[in-house]
Design a protein around this nucleic acid. Structure first.
Lengths: 90, 90
DNA sequence: TGTTTATTTAGCCATATTGCTAACCAGATT
DNA sequence: AATCTGGTTAGCAATATGGCTAAATAAACA
């Protein structure tokens, strides 16, 4: 649960929901040092939310629990709409 | 998001999903001092997840975003089953 | 009015989290 | 073998979190 409780990690999960990404891509998007991203990824990995796949020099991360996806949609709807509308959408 | 990232607050949300509860009830269930529970509740309230309703001396809290409910179910299914099964349920 | 009950606020301390930099590791390339 | 590239690990400082106790508040009651 706590694994999702950080904006950067939310961003990562959201981004991975659109396909696998390597650490360098995520680092560039997030605008923070790579070791920091790496640690966030290791937290997500320890929580079982993502999986890593080493190919050549790069390590690609992918979402492991599609459940996150439906949750993310819910969160987004809550953020976009007021709570009443969000609930209707859920 | 961070509002849900603590076992006590998860418990509170789960409990409130079964109906409103006053602070003293929650305090007794959780087994921690009342000021602590109060602060958790204020965090949930600030996040817009719960609403409080003062009646007489007691203050009753209720879930405000039913969206939490479907999320909770998802989380529970993840916890109970392994990830493969959880995804099937989602 | 003074007291009791239910709750919140304030202040303190211990621990956890997050970011950074520096150092390390492992494949690929030369 | 030496080096480059993409990542991780380690260690540190700053900040946030979570628990406690003590003090403040507010409604009900004697």
């Amino acid at each position: 649960m706590k694994a999702l409780a950080h904006p950067t990690r939310m961003f990562i999960v959201d981004e991975l929901s659109r396909g696998e990404r390597c650490v360098c891509e995520l680092t560039e998007m997030i605008g923070v040092e790579m070791p920091t991203v790496s640690r966030h990824l290791s937290i997500l990995k320890k929580a079982g939310l993502v999986r890593d796949d080493k190919r050549g020099l790069k390590i690609f991360y992918q979402l492991r629990v599609p459940c996150c996806l439906s949750f993310l949609k819910c969160v987004e709807s809550v953020l976009q709409a007021d709570e009443a509308e969000a609930c209707r959408a859920a």
